[in-house]
Amino acid sequence: MTSIPVKEIVGINAISMNSGKKIKELIIKEWDRSEQIILDFSDVNVFASPFFNASIGALLKDKDIKQLQEKLDFQGISEHGKRLLNLVISNAIKFYSDKESKTDLGLDEVRKDI
């Protein structure tokens, strides 16, 4: 079992995509090593969707929700944070299962821009 102290890594605000990417990288690093990964959100005050999109939502590109539920444990997270987390997961499941529909239209264009 591994515990990731979110506040120590991103500070008291879990809001930005960059912060989310840091957490995602740590989760991926621990994924095969640990039976369970605890994400400890104690003392994290503010949450926003870009953070969860880049940390948890992005994991659903290669993993399914059942795997996430078995592996991840969210501790010390506020009700608001949990609601955002569930909203992001719901959107991410749709996003990654929607590869043939309009969500992907123009993706090549966007890649060119980047």
């Binding site: 969707s49 969500t103 966007v110 821009d113």
Partner: peptide, 22 residues
Amino acid sequence: EIGNSTRTDSAPDIPRGLGFGI
């Protein structure tokens, strides 16, 4: 609408489009 995004703010394979819905 929730879930819709033009993905102009970062990598295209990260889900987004929740800001206005939230």
